[in-house]
């Protein structure tokens, strides 16, 4: 098991990207630079930011659609959900998970489970349950970064508190972020409805997809499931 993968990196060195001594050291440096556990720090942790939200059209995919959620839908058993009912929105039940890069480059990598990746730093989740905004520390190549992600219910714009929030980050459908350091899961809630997501280390330049999962530990079989996901393009140069 020592062949090279598509990136020219050995199987072991790619798979060994979990939190090891280097990750711990990086995390310690990051912690030392942080002023608190709250929103992303103003202190620049890299010489000059080379990345950020990818500019583009504002998200309007929900329009006036609002999908309410029910806490009781979080633990529903599969046999209690109607056949083919996969959580509503535009996530398309029966999806096979995707195995090809989408021709339209909407960042879903061919999977109908997810909606189109959004530009900028605000938009609604795929199923129109939440409105999501994010800010971040300066984004630089190979420097772990934290995102401050604020989630509000679309029903009344109240903060989504106590949620399990975590990131899923990939470049070109094939290249995930390294495990050193691995993002915290779940992300700590710094103020009601705002979560400190990371650390995320972008170790290649390019147009990354940063997908935030909200209540990711909730079963997502009913339209009212609190489980949601919202993805944004982040460009790193």
């Amino acid at each position: 098991m020592s062949s090279m993968n598509a990136h020219g990196v050995s199987f072991f060195s790619r798979s060994g990207r979990y939190l090891g001594p280097i990750g711990a050291a990086a995390f310690a440096v990051l912690a030392a630079c942080s002023s608190n556990g709250g929103a992303p720090d103003a202190a620049v942790t890299c010489a000059a930011a080379t990345g950020g939200a990818t500019p583009g059209p504002a998200d309007t995919h929900c329009g006036s659609t609002v999908q309410p959620t029910l806490a009781s839908s979080c633990h529903v058993q599969p046999d209690a959900a109607a056949p083919g009912d996969d959580g509503g929105g535009d996530d398309g039940g029966g999806d096979d998970g995707g195995a090809t890069v989408d021709a339209g480059d909407i960042g879903t990598c061919g999977s109908a489970a997810y909606g189109a990746t959004m530009y900028g730093s605000q938009g609604s989740d795929d199923d129109c349950k939440y409105d999501v905004t994010w800010t971040s520390m300066p984004i630089c190549l190979n420097v772990p970064v934290y995102f401050s992600v604020t989630v509000k219910y679309r029903t009344d714009q109240s903060p989504v508190t106590g949620a399990t929030v975590g990131p899923d980050v990939v470049l070109s459908c094939k290249y995930p972020i390294p495990n050193d350091p691995a993002p915290l899961y779940p992300s700590p809630e710094t103020t009601p409805g705002t979560y400190k997501v990371g650390p995320v280390k972008f170790d290649r330049a390019g147009k990354w997809v940063v997908r935030f999962h909200i209540n990711g530990d909730c079963v997502d079989l009913l339209p009212t499931s609190p489980h949601g996901h919202a993805a944004f393009w982040v460009t790193v140069q």
């Binding site: 062949s3 993968n5 598509a6 599969p78 996969d86 959580g87 996530d91 039940g93 096979d96 998970g97 995707g98 195995a99 090809t100 890069v101 960042g107 879903t108 990598c109 061919g110 999977s111 489970a113 997810y114 899923d168 980050v169 990939v170 459908c173 094939k174 290249y175 995930p176 997809v209 997908r211 990711g216 909730c218 079963v219 997502d220 079989l221 489980h227 996901h229 993805a231």
Partner: peptide, 18 residues
């Protein structure tokens, strides 16, 4: 394709098989 059935989604990364 890595998949979480209960969560109705998989991973954003498509693994490479050799």
């Amino acid at each position: 394709v890595p998949w979480m059935a209960a969560m109705n989604h998989g991973s954003s990364t498509i693994p490479t098989v050799t």
